[in-house]
Write a protein that binds this DNA or RNA. Structure first.
Length: 537
DNA sequence: CAGGCGTTGCTGGA
DNA sequence: TCCAGCAACGCCTG
């Protein structure tokens, strides 16, 4: 039986002191408070067999971002008379052991809609309740409770942004006061026989020095988040005029967006506090942009995807996903690897992928370009495989948002105009005609004259020689011809859509296999005709 | 069941 | 910088 007067606050996301209802409840009326973070070795420890430095699940950039966030949280807690207790192990088992060892009356942790936590939390909650421990698990990662919106919408999540806005209305934080700070927190209680540690370093998790050099410029933590937020919104005119689609995806020294996403992902920044800051600015200016394109609109897109993801079984898969078009994507590991490693031969695409590898972040529109290229635009490879690469490498990778956007970009759900394809040549050129972005992330092309920088294979050999970059040797030849590849993709998408329509959403594996066979046959016929053409002429 | 609409396409022209 | 023309999808609303 739980007889103690202590509380356990379990940090997972929500790595912050400000606006943290679980922390607030845990600290209230408790003699002792145990702030716990559990390091899951699968997620955190080095795995040398992975294709990029990192664990088996996450790239080293995100792991470092998380460690920095934990250090910052620990230091904030220490200033308030507490500290972070760090454990290593399977989180569910560790939590049960903590509950057994410490006689706490309350277990507090932020509610999480991700499937991983849904499964984990049930186990921990059940154990706690069965031993008489009060469980407090508030919704504070998002502005809305996704379950409430789904209920209001008749049991299914709204599938368009506009209908989402209508159902959602105003979030409760629009009118409520947030607890932003404390004068002190309860001290930690007796630890008993449990082995705790400080927040580990990357070295302590098995990472070598050479896996850490020249990586992301974004530092983790609540302090960093609040600093960044203050700086981002200090220019009220910039906030008021923010229009997402007009941002420059090639800006990297000073990104065109706020780069608050990794802080929102880990909960270093409260979305509700962000919301209130934006509303205060909108009140002060004469006119401002509106959702979906405004800064507030971006926060609401996050809510939109959290809600659709929570209310859609198998949201992260094509099969068994009610809202996902069934499309006969190709399996091609070599092509996937070339895309992943920034070796497609299209500098704009490759530079974006290198920025992802090095920084773990790139502009939203840059993500669109590479996602479109991999799936419906050029390579016709499954969105789930691109999703996996993003999920590993992005410092802001968020289960609901990442899956939602991959379905969006691959025209599998939410967005269906598959004739609109991003050009891997002209899209970047619009913003960055000199190719500064390409030169920075692909130094091999740094001396290529600007008229060839987006299509280096068109440069005369003398120019390539002078630029110290021979295409086919120093930099790859384009893996596909965009004009014919995109045309082919459009045709396949058209056929796949027709099949989905015909089957009224009940496409099975056999239907897909048949269509795949038909598409391959058509492609074969066409290439035969293409090959004959020179002879005819 | 038709018509309007949808955060972010492309090219080419003014 | 903005527009037409291109080709043309499904979802939502009335």
């Amino acid at each position: 039986m739980a007889t103690g007067s202590g509380s356990l606050i379990w940090f997972r996301k929500g790595l912050r002191v400000h606006d943290n209802p679980a922390l607030e409840y845990a600290s209230k009326g408790s003699e002792f408070m145990y702030p716990v973070f559990v390091i899951d070795p699968h997620y955190m420890e080095s795995d040398p067999s992975a294709f990029s430095p990192g664990s088996s699940r996450a790239g080293v950039n995100r792991i470092r971002f998380l460690l920095e966030s934990l250090k910052d949280l620990d230091s904030s807690l220490k200033k308030l008379g507490s500290r972070l207790l760090v454990f290593k192990g399977e989180p569910g088992e560790v939590l049960v052991r903590c509950l057994q060892e410490w006689k706490v009356k309350r277990l507090c942790f932020e509610y999480d809609t991700d499937p991983y936590y849904q499964a984990l939390d049930v186990k921990v909650k059940d154990y706690a309740s069965s031993t008489g421990v009060e469980v407090f698990s508030p919704v504070s990662h998002t502005l809305f409770n996704p379950a409430h919106i789904i209920e209001k919408n008749g049991g299914k999540p709204p599938l368009s942004y506009q209908s989402f806005l209508k159902v959602a209305g105003e979030p409760s934080c629009a009118k409520s006061e947030l607890v932003m700070s404390y004068s002190s927190l309860p001290p930690i209680g007796d630890i008993g026989n449990l082995g705790i540690s400080e927040v580990p370093s990357l070295e302590e998790l098995g990472y070598k020095d050479d896996e850490q050099a020249d990586w992301t410029p974004f530092r983790g933590g609540e302090s960093e988040a609040l600093k960044r937020l203050t700086k981002s919104i200090s220019d009220k005119a910039w906030v008021a005029n923010f229009e997402k689609p007009k941002g420059d995806p090639s800006a990297f020294l000073k990104p065109a967006t706020t780069v608050m996403s990794p802080y929102l992902k880990f909960g270093c920044l409260s979305s509700r506090y962000f919301y209130q800051c934006l509303q205060n600015i909108y009140k002060d200016v004469k006119k401002h942009t509106s959702p979906p394109v405004s800064l507030l609109g971006q926060l609401l897109w996050r809510e939109f995807f959290y809600t659709t993801a929570f209310g859609t079984p198998n949201f992260d898969k094509m099969k068994g996903n009610r809202i996902c078009k069934q499309i006969p994507w190709n399996e091609d590991h070599a092509m996937l690897a070339a895309w992943r490693d920034g070796k497609t031969g299209y500098p704009w695409i490759d530079a974006i992928m290198v920025q992802l590898l090095k920084w773990g972040w790139m502009h939203h529109l840059a993500r669109h370009c590479v996602a479109c290229f991999l799936t419906r635009g050029d390579l016709f490879i499954h969105w789930e495989q691109g999703r996996d690469v993003f999920e590993r490498l992005l410092i802001d990778s968020d289960w609901a948002i990442n899956n939602g956007n991959w379905m969006w970009l691959s025209c599998s759900s939410f967005f269906y105009q598959f004739n609109r394809i991003y050009s891997p040549i002209s899209f970047g050129k619009k913003y960055d005609p000199d190719g500064k972005y390409i030169r920075h992330f692909l130094p091999v092309l740094k001396d290529m004259p600007k008229q060839y920088i987006y299509e280096p294979w068109t440069a005369p050999l003398s120019v390539q020689t002078k630029a110290n970059c021979i295409v086919g040797k120093d930099y790859p030849k384009p893996m596909v011809l965009h004009d014919s590849a995109s045309k082919e993709c459009k045709r396949k998408m058209g056929e796949a859509y027709a099949l989905n329509k015909k089957m009224d959403g009940k496409v099975d594996e056999e239907n897909l296999r048949d269509l795949r066979r038909k598409l391959q046959k058509d492609e074969h016929e066409e290439s035969k005709i293409r090959n004959q053409r020179p002879k005819l002429k």
